[in-house]
């Protein structure tokens, strides 16, 4: 029931967004027709051909509906810029972006949560202040600046990592993706440090922790209570982190010249490659919605009050 409502909400968001992107592209200065013509002479024949091919003479709602119909049949159209089917282009570039965000997420979780927990346990001491400051710096650092600094130090300076490229074979690919993934993870680490530290501190201050200590539960058991209960607020951060990562990949892929969805988005947007931008917007929205849905499922798994219909107090 709860999930059904969420699904319906997600569908509405996706629909609104695709309409928004559609309108935006057609409101943009310089007609799509102009872009499509490119360097070809603007003879009445070529214009008519283009208008016929892309249904540019139909009213906007009709164009939208025909695009939507195509999407539902699995046809995302062809790219104006390259002439390739959009689905193929996305298919080529999706694995890299997924690998990059996956790698980045793993790094962020492995570093961010332990740091946040350590900070909470040493609250107010030097180690905690260091963790907090590092978290804020991480949170403030845009991925492209971090990426370039990493390149300066580890690729150009120390020569440990390759400067550009994707690499061949698994080990080499991991090596090539490490600096981009780190650049992407830095912001997420900052966010996770902040959220997990704050959540754990809040839990440790609760009466039930004092009560658990007072009735003789060992330190690991008490920390287990608090960690388990701080999971719910940390889950909230997960949605924010993934959306932040998707925005971050754009910058990281451009910085490291990686052929992923992000660099495709930048290229397509500046070229007004309508079908590609539309499809990318749809794909990214679906990804975000899927993550948010997972977070909601996680909520109800983690919190019996959500699952059993109590009021979270």
């Amino acid at each position: 029931m709860f999930l059904l409502r969420r699904l319906a909400g997600t569908a509405v968001v996706v629909a609104l967004l695709s309409i928004g992107v559609f309108c935006l592209l057609y409101l943009a200065p310089g007609s799509v027709q102009q872009t499509l013509l490119g360097t070809r002479p603007a003879t009445p024949e070529t214009i008519a051909a283009i208008q016929a091919r892309y249904h540019l003479n139909d009213p906007l709602p009709v164009q939208y509906l025909s695009w939507l119909g195509g999407v539902l049949r699995g046809d995302l159209g062809t790219s104006i810029r390259t002439g390739m089917p959009v689905a193929d282009m996305l298919g080529q570039r999706l694995p890299l972006t997924l690998a990059l965000t996956g790698y980045g997420t793993v790094l962020a979780v492995l570093v961010g949560i332990p740091l946040g927990v350590a900070g909470a346990l040493r609250r107010g001491r030097a180690a905690d202040r260091l963790v907090v400051t590092a978290g804020v710096v991480g949170l403030s650092a845009p991925p492209f600046a971090v990426g370039l600094l990493l390149l300066v130090v580890f690729a150009a300076g120390l020569g440990w990592f390759p400067v550009y490229g994707v690499g061949e074979g698994f080990a080499d690919q991991v090596l090539h993706l490490t600096l981009p993934a780190v650049a992407l993870a830095v912001g997420a680490v900052g966010m996770l440090v902040r959220f997990s530290r704050a959540a754990l501190i809040r839990e440790l201050d609760q009466d039930y922790v004092v009560f658990a200590r007072a009735r003789g539960l060992g330190a690991p058991a008490v920390l287990g209570y608090a960690l388990r209960n701080s999971l719910v607020p940390i889950l909230t951060a997960a949605g924010l982190i993934v959306t932040g990562m998707l925005a971050g990949t754009v910058l990281v892929e451009v910085t490291f010249a990686l052929p992923g969805l992000g660099s495709l988005l930048v290229d397509s947007v500046t070229f007004k490659d309508v079908p590609v931008v539309q499809a990318l917007a749809l794909l990214l929205t679906l990804l975000i919605a899927a993550v948010n849905l997972l977070v909601d499922v996680g909520y109800s798994a983690a919190d019996p009050r959500v699952r059993l219909g109590g009021r979270p107090s």
Binding site: Q206, D207, Y208, V210, F211, A212, A214, R215, Y225, R228, N229, V232, A302, D303, P304, R305, S313
Partner: peptide, 13 residues
């Protein structure tokens, strides 16, 4: 020790 507020002294989850 038995504490004051029955609404907060137990682990809610």
């Amino acid at each position: 020790l038995l504490m004051q507020d029955p609404f907060t002294l137990l682990n809610p989850l």
